[in-house]
């Protein structure tokens, strides 16, 4: 616990002292403003917009994950680029402690943002248990994304390129909402598809547990596989 707090404090210092990262902390405020004020206005002004509100909620919830996905990815990329990662390889900190210390706070922060988002959105009545469960699943995108990026890239420039590619991959299953018939299941090969379906079911008042279960298992397996690869590379 002490290590988690120490590293989180250090991470926040790094974020606040880097203008390019600091500005991303404002992203959720913008997102909340859009969901609370702009979306209701659009739905009221343009009735044809209403059927797509649930899709916008999916995008909003996933965009909440993008703040810490980007920030934490860049912090770890900087750490690798400046060889500070090597130092973590020679301190009494186990691999699991290291991962937990670096990813627990971004994950929990993202979960909280989404719980609040689902509470303050003015369109649907969502039960707290379902809300927290789906938010916990959505939040898992952050560690998988951060570890995935950092398993591949070696420097900040590469990081920027891969982050754009990862954003596209995360958001690609949005297309499933516009594809008729069973073709939408092809997006099931991407873990974010199950996250999107969970949010969609949540907002539509439908049963969420099956999508939740598949999403959790999918993302946890990806996280475990990627973290093995990441840990082999990161401290060298």
């Amino acid at each position: 616990m002490k290590n988690i707090i120490t590293l989180s404090v250090a991470d926040f210092k790094l974020i606040f002292r880097d203008p390019s990262l600091r500005s991303f902390l404002g992203l959720p405020i913008l997102l909340f403003a859009l969901v609370i004020w702009l979306l209701p206005y659009l739905a009221q002004t343009y009735p044809g917009f209403e059927p797509y509100i649930s899709v916008f909620m999916v995008v909003a919830a996933v965009e909440n994950t993008q703040m810490f996905s980007f920030i934490s990815s860049m912090v770890l990329i900087d750490e690798k680029e400046n060889s500070v990662a090597q130092v973590y390889g020679v301190v009494p900190l186990s691999n699991s402690e290291y991962l937990l210390s670096r990813l627990a706070i971004p994950y929990l922060f993202t979960v909280c943002l989404n719980v609040i988002l689902f509470i303050v959105q003015p369109f649907y009545h969502i039960g707290l248990i379902e809300n927290i469960s789906v938010s916990m699943l959505v939040g898992l995108i952050v560690p998988v994304y951060v570890i995935g990026i950092n398993s591949i890239v070696k420097n900040r420039m590469q990081g920027m390129v891969y982050i754009k590619a990862f954003n596209l991959i995360v958001l690609a299953p949005i297309a499933a909402f516009f594809i008729p018939g069973k073709w939408e299941w092809i997006f099931g090969l991407l873990p974010s598809h199950w996250v999107f379906q969970s949010i969609q079911n949540l907002t539509n008042g439908e049963e969420v547990w099956m999508n939740l279960l598949i999403g959790f298992v999918f993302l946890m397996i990806m996280f475990l596989l990627l973290s093995r690869h990441f840990l082999k590379k990161h401290f060298n």
Binding site: L7, K13, V84, V91
Partner: peptide, 19 residues
């Protein structure tokens, strides 16, 4: 190999905290 945005004291204290 140090965190460039942290001070020397912060760098030392951070890694010292693991012992």
């Amino acid at each position: 190999n140090h965190y460039l945005k942290l001070t020397g004291r912060e760098n030392l204290a951070l890694f010292g905290s693991f012992y």
